[in-house]
Amino acid sequence: MNGAAKMPEPAALLTAEKIHVWRGERHVLRGVSLKVESGRLLHLFGPNGTGKTTLLRVIAGLLRPEQGRVCWDGRPIGEAREQYQSAMAYASHEAALKADLTALENLRYAVGMKRRASETELRAALEETGVGGCADLPARVLSAGQKRRVAMARVLAMRASLWLLDEPYANLDTSGGALVSRLLEEHLDRGGLALVIAHHALELGRSIDRLELSP
């Protein structure tokens, strides 16, 4: 994809320091710290209910932690909100598609808020994730795996340097899984950063960092 031409700024850095989150009485995250640098991937794993998604939401800025802070390039994400959000693409475990809009329209209205992307570009992104043929179908008729691929195309088209992916391998067949791994590798080759929640071991052709959350 020609998106590869645009390199993120060198030495981008995401840090989280001593994140504490309570959910009612439950102390979900107890002082989690992490660091992701350019070209690195951090694999988040652990049993259900250990706060992986919560941590990812804190890092995305969707959830304010009771204590601790998340910094992007040394600045707290609350202060540099706009820069951070334009540099970041978040894919939750749901595909976040409007059922009544086509795959292409879904991309247009989501990506278009961050950067001006031409229709050819968006179609190319869908092509890249193997759902080019579904571009003009309403998301309602797509299968779970196809929706996941459209969501990946959205991440791709945002051309963000930081990818936050919650279970990107869910609902995908073998070829889909290989596709996500390939996209991740290309992203890291471009100097991108990635934080990925996955239950199984990630097999990329490079070393990755791992962070296990325990109950």
Binding site: L62, Q85, A96, L97, A110, M113, K114
Partner: peptide
């Protein structure tokens, strides 16, 4: 609707 299908989250993270 947007909150249920997750698109509201995407909107709030849209740098706007």
């Amino acid at each position: 609707g947007d909150a249920e299908d997750g698109t509201l989250e995407q909107l709030t993270l849209s740098a706007q």
